[in-house]
Nucleic acid binder design. Structure first.
Lengths: 208, 208
DNA sequence: TTGTTTTCTTAACGAGCGGTACAAAATCAT
DNA sequence: ATGATTTTGTACCGCTCGTTAAGAAAACAA
């Protein structure tokens, strides 16, 4: 496995995890390479050698974040009904943005406030749009399955979920406690069509 | 009115309006004093002379923004019922964050992504908290008036509204069109207690 | 050993940042 | 006119940013 040349003196996976943490707390522009390199336990030129420039490092960190801290999305998409799918997403998001011992909020929402800073805003917006598309497709399938009543707009329902989760991220960063977000997830589900008559009261029990 | 000294060569009100626009588009950290001064049509030392440092300029811009672009909040708080109040707020917010010819999103949400940049994050979080408190108080009064059914939590309802509006701001900045946000406002109101039996279907008509 | 290759450390680069010194210019009061 | 006072324009300060040049150090292959 090892070719010629001096071996790398740090674990790139651990270093990337540390970078995720810093980007999560500080955002893209707010995270300086000095702070990043220090948190990663590595000198700045080694960061460039291993990950490329700041934008590439951020995108690697975003990928890592998605697969490590947004697993609840894939989880929700596999639920049998559209209603359970939506509920699992909102609850999973509320939990994810209020994880004890991790930065409050969502890297994908908080990392960049405003457009034009570079291309990074587009990367995050595309990430949000992708998640939205996945739920819209799921709801389209639910419509075909008859699991969602005809006349409902799958795109509108997906937008509803992503908008709520974006709000959750902002509020979590403001310090809103987990329980408040879970209560809002439950309330919001009252606006989701066709509670399917059975699952609604049961699934929230014992959660808070 | 005019004391001694050379008279100011620019209109401070117009200059502040220009600063609002820049902070709104770029955020606090993203707006450089060079860009601010250029947009204000003023040299940098004159900005300091008229407004103080960047933080003070930002707070003046925020105050201006609140009174010029968040009038829908005071408007909503004066509605006769809690339900109409909530609906007016969500619709007003959806319209405000998608104003044609103005930056998409909300200055109070977008301007600062992450804490610790200085004290500015706290200023904005306090602004959001204040609005939330105003609605919680309004809903407490509604409870006393019997306008909101007993057992409802005014703080939870207020948090629900602010969370939605934060989500609206993020989504608007992503390019979500006004109609989508209005549809979400209407949908979210299905989760708001006690539609009061009369007003719900009527108030949304002719809006989109 | 002697290259070859890769990573390491140190130190610095140019650019842009928020903020300011300084003197010329424009107004008031006397 | 003559100060006193305030704003204006220019030019600059120290600092931090992302990024890189340069050489020492550590592995492999011959």
């Amino acid at each position: 496995m090892a070719g010629p040349g001096r071996p790398r003196a740090f674990d790139t996976d651990e270093a990337l995890d540390a970078a995720v943490e810093v980007f999560w707390r500080r955002g893209f522009a707010g995270a300086s390479l000095t702070e990043l390199a220090a948190a990663m336990g590595v000198n700045k030129p080694s960061v460039y050698g291993a990950f490329g420039d700041k934008a590439q490092l951020f995108q690697a960190a975003l990928r890592r974040y998605v697969e490590r801290n947004m697993a609840y999305v894939a989880d929700a998409l596999e639920r049998p009904t559209a209603w359970e799918c939506a509920q699992a997403f909102l609850v999973g998001n509320a939990l994810a943005v209020t994880m004890p011992g991790r930065p409050a909020g969502c890297l994908s929402v908080q990392a960049i406030a405003t457009p034009d800073d570079s291309g990074e805003y587009a990367v995050l917006a595309e990430n949000r749009a992708m998640v939205q598309r996945m739920f819209a497709d799921r709801f389209r399938r639910a419509l075909a399955d008859g699991d969602l009543q005809a006349g409902e707009d799958p795109d509108e329902l997906a937008t509803f979920l992503i908008t709520l989760s974006s709000g959750f991220a902002v509020r979590a960063a403001d310090g809103t406690p987990r329980q408040s977000l879970l209560a809002m997830a439950e309330r919001a589900m009252a606006a989701f069509p066709a509670p399917a008559a059975d699952s609604r009261s049961a699934t929230f029990e014992g959660r808070h």
